[in-house]
Computed example of a mutant assay.
Amino acid sequence: MRLTIVGCAGSYPGPDSAASCYLVEAPYEDRTYRLVVDLGNGALGVLQQYAGLADLDAIAISHLHPDHYMDICGMYVYRKYVPGGPLPRIPLWGPEGSARRFAEAYDLPLDPGMTEELDVSTWRDGEPVALGPFTVTPTRVDHPVESFALRIEADGRVLTYSGDTGPTPALVEAARGADVFLCEASFTDGPANPPNLHLTGTEAGEAATAAGAGRLLLTHVPTWTDHDTVAAEAKAAFAGPSELVAPGNVYEV
């Protein structure tokens, strides 16, 4: 698998990064299959630097906060109105209520909403989904809205994406033995952090250690959080290789 960081700013787009968006690619039937994981605000424009929008095969949304899905609105416009279109429906998996939320975000009638452009299906905790060469298994994690970590497997390799979560044993299980663990780290250590919301760098490192992950990639760090502190916390808690991601970084999994 190849992982490209499209956007990695936490909670809202930053001055040098869109919100959460990741492109995961793998060979499939003599071509490259392209899965977009999250499509937060600001990400759709940047995504076009790495893939043509008509060349995408599927979309996976971890949860329904705007910094993880809002650019679905632009994707809808593209697929509906592109010259020569409309394009065939693209498979999209997301939490319960995704189709309704997408329609409301663009002020569309709920029927059909965006369902003529997006083939929307609902994650079920622990139930794997086949998308081209990928098997994607969602695991419910700890966040104020329904949020899923996504374990993405292809050809014996494993990439786990945390989505947004506070500390939870479920995240460790989702990342168990992962070759690459792409994990949010929105906070630094301190007593004022809200519970059941996000991870610190220390907590991300601890989860990676407990899961036996091979490599830790830190993402979803808001502009207001000290990035160097997050990175140092993770390194202190995880003995393996770790780093903060940046837009445009490419990783072979």
Rank of each mutant, 00 (worst) to 15 (best):
T115Y: 05
A185M: 06
A9I: 00
A174W: 00
Y78A: 08
A239V: 09
M75T: 15
Q49M: 02
D30A: 14
Y69M: 09
G190Y: 11
L171F: 08
H65I: 09
I72P: 07
A210Q: 12
P86C: 07
P144Q: 07
T188N: 01
P138T: 01
V172M: 08
P191R: 15
D111T: 11
L47R: 00
A130P: 15
S11R: 08
L3I: 10
R79C: 03
V245W: 07
G212Y: 04
G132P: 14
D228W: 14
G166V: 12
E104C: 05
G74K: 11
A19D: 01
T225A: 15
L92E: 05
A207E: 01
A208K: 04
Y76F: 14
S62P: 07
G190P: 13
S98G: 02
L64G: 01
E117L: 11
G74P: 06
L171N: 07
E153Y: 09
G166K: 07
A175G: 11
G166N: 09
D155V: 15
A174Y: 00
M1A: 12
A103C: 01
G156V: 06
T137N: 14
V158N: 13
S11T: 12
E96C: 08
A19T: 00
D226T: 12
G132L: 12
D71H: 14
P169T: 11
T135S: 15
E243C: 04
V6F: 02
Y76H: 11
A54C: 09
P86H: 04
E252H: 10
Y69E: 06
L108I: 06
D179T: 02
S242R: 00
M114T: 07
A246K: 09
R157M: 12
N193D: 11
A18D: 01
L217R: 03
P27M: 12
G240V: 05
A149Q: 01
G45Y: 11
S186Q: 08
A170N: 11
L92N: 04
E206Q: 14
Y33A: 02
V141N: 04
Y22P: 10
S62V: 13
T168G: 08
A130N: 14
G74L: 13
V180S: 00
A234G: 07
P112D: 08
Q49V: 02
D55T: 11
R176D: 12
H220Y: 06
L3Q: 04
F134L: 13
L244S: 04
L244W: 04
Y22I: 11
L159R: 10
Y12Q: 07
P128S: 14
G10W: 00
I61C: 05
A239E: 04
V136L: 13
T122I: 09
L110F: 05
C21A: 15
Y76R: 06
L64V: 13
V24A: 06
R89K: 05
L3Y: 07
G156L: 04
L53G: 07
A51P: 10
V120M: 12
E206F: 06
E252C: 10
D189P: 11
P247L: 01
A192M: 14
V120P: 03
E184C: 01
E206N: 11
F187D: 13
P144T: 10
S20W: 02
